[in-house]
């Protein structure tokens, strides 16, 4: 079974996000593999630990600065890494590039995170699915392999959780508790050093969707404290009676 894990490289949640001249000030930010994609990668590695014949490829759409995180994915247990050398602009562009890659290669399972934690769209898996005509399910909180052409997942919906069997190829948007995050060990780190990161060059196309500016949301006003004895004043101010 061939598994593709698509990762995004995003600012660590605790990083302070600052934009200078509408460009993200990257120097002060620690970049990480998106937390949800880290779950996806960890589950793929767990499946490989159970079945050695599984092959894991990792894909990122981004620039050279992301290579260290692709190498981290190799250290955690991925077999090969690919980077489409294009500055990621938005979900529409990234999904087109991933769809091209998926069409040119054969994967049974394509794992992504539920959403990237920078633009929070949570739509790339479905956009890729629509383009390559694969089924896409998100968010899934468990994944196991039934046989060569079937997987079983827990799919979270608005008011229910469904245990589903679905045929491959399929695209899944992963979220916890699908796996425990994996930390690379020394052996993995050494092994990853000798592996190559495959760079795919693509022309940047004219974008219909352009991110023009970035601003901070308005700050909350100063907090107003209420003592235990005047809770009624707070409730009156909130006007929340049913």
């Amino acid at each position: 079974m061939n598994i593709l894990v698509c990762i995004s490289c995003v600012p660590d949640t605790t990083s302070k996000i600052v934009f200078n001249d509408n460009k993200l000030a990257k120097d002060d930010i620690q970049f990480i593999i998106g937390p949800y994609e880290d779950y996806a990668l960890s589950r793929a590695v767990e499946l490989k630990e159970e079945n050695e014949s599984i092959n894991i490829s990792v894909l990122n759409v981004g620039l050279k600065e992301n290579d260290s995180l692709l190498r981290r994915s190799l250290a955690v247990g991925a077999d090969s890494a690919f980077r489409i050398n294009v500055n990621p602009n938005d979900s529409n562009q990234v999904s087109s590039l991933i769809a091209d890659f998926v069409s040119e290669n054969k994967f049974d399972l394509i794992l992504m995170g539920k959403e990237s934690t920078d633009f929070n769209s949570g739509i790339v898996h479905h956009l890729v699915g629509s383009k390559v005509k694969y089924n896409s399910l998100s968010p899934v909180s468990s994944l196991s392999i039934v046989d060569n052409t079937t997987v079983e997942v827990n799919l979270e919906k608005k008011s229910s959780i469904e245990k589903i069997q679905v045929s491959t190829p399929v695209i899944l948007g992963c979220q916890e508790p699908i796996a425990d995050w994996k930390i690379p060990n020394m052996r993995g780190i050494m092994k990853a050093r000798s592996k190559e990161i495959n760079i795919i060059e693509k022309e940047e196309k004219e974008m219909k969707v352009k991110y023009e500016n970035f601003t901070l949301p308005p700050k909350r006003s100063e907090i107003k404290y209420f003592a235990k004895d005047n809770i009624s004043d707070l409730l009156e101010e909130l006007k929340i009676f049913k």
Partner: peptide, 17 residues
């Protein structure tokens, strides 16, 4: 305008379509 970076940033988007 779109809420991004876990609601920490508002992105202004121009769509030419």
């Amino acid at each position: 305008e779109s809420s991004s970076y876990n609601n920490n940033v508002i992105s202004g988007i121009n769509i030419q379509s």
